[in-house]
Amino acid sequence: MLVPVLLGVSVVMFFITHVVPSSPARLIGGPHATEETIRQIESELGLDRPLHLQYGIYIRKVLSGDFGISIHSRNPVIEDLKNYFPATFELTSLAMLITLIIGIPLGVFSATHKDRAADHATRLFSLSGVAMPLFWLGLLLQLLLSSYFKLLPVGGRIDPLVTLLHPIRHMSGLYLIDTLITGNWPAFKSAVLHIILPTTTLVYFLLATLTRMSRSSMLEILRQDYIRNAMADGLPEKTIFYRYALRNALIPTVTIAGLTYGLLLGGDFLVEIIYSWPGLGFYAVGSMASLDFPAIMGVTMLVAVIFVTVNLIVDILYAVLDPRIRYG
């Protein structure tokens, strides 16, 4: 599945980025560049060759790990991706972990207390989370907790002053883990304080989707005969809900969680922009705004790889959750 999808994505993106009216050569040359300079830049970038040849060259380079040079940052795109991805990974994974820990029990609770006050409250909460613009929620939290109460930093990943005094040894690129392992406490504290707001924003949005999903799949399972049978046999409710029902209800929930995780790893754009979180989304929007085509292509290819990989992991998880599903 990976190869055809990547080929497809690369063709679509290559087509979109190369058949557009806005020319990258004109952008590099600046507003006062003469026709001659522009033509020279075009031939340097290989933009004057036929499109299918350009695509062939691009793919050959990509296969050898060369995504080209970013027009905007003037670094190799692959280096940029390596620098920006860990920030996104850290933020998204933390948010997903918290969401799973809170969301699944909340959904089960809502389903087992169907049509009671707690259920209505949970449903209203998750509806509001789905309908609320993520970037707006971020702004509100910033306004309240950073500007008004001055509890948390407005944005960024870590206080630059702290890193100056207590430099971080880069191992995994995940600040929370790197600082924890090396015992760099001031930097760890700063990293924790910076990650709270973006994580909260993401968790709110994720919880809404996940709680809804786990509630509805749980409700569907609870209607099944074998649950009624277990009830009639007088098994304790806790055993029925958590051992019999939840395991089956988890499959659709895991699907949604996996899909969303894959989506967000590709850049939780809006959250990253609001909190100036130097992740993939931040990088992608910057490159899109400046029509940095090599960077846009690189980001989209990486995003596609991540997305397909996460989907594969979800498929494998199915077999773990439901022994009836077997592959191969």
């Binding site: 999808v5 979109i16 009216p21 806005s22 590709g266 899109m288 995003v303 596609a304 997305f307």
Partner: peptide, 23 residues
């Protein structure tokens, strides 16, 4: 297969890229 390609891709990223490219 064409829908698979579109669905195997984060839609917001695609929408942003297309919008950026079209102007």
């Amino acid at each position: 297969r064409v829908t698979d390609i579109f669905l195997s891709f984060p839609p917001l990223v695609l929408a942003m890229a297309i919008s950026a490219a079209l102007g």
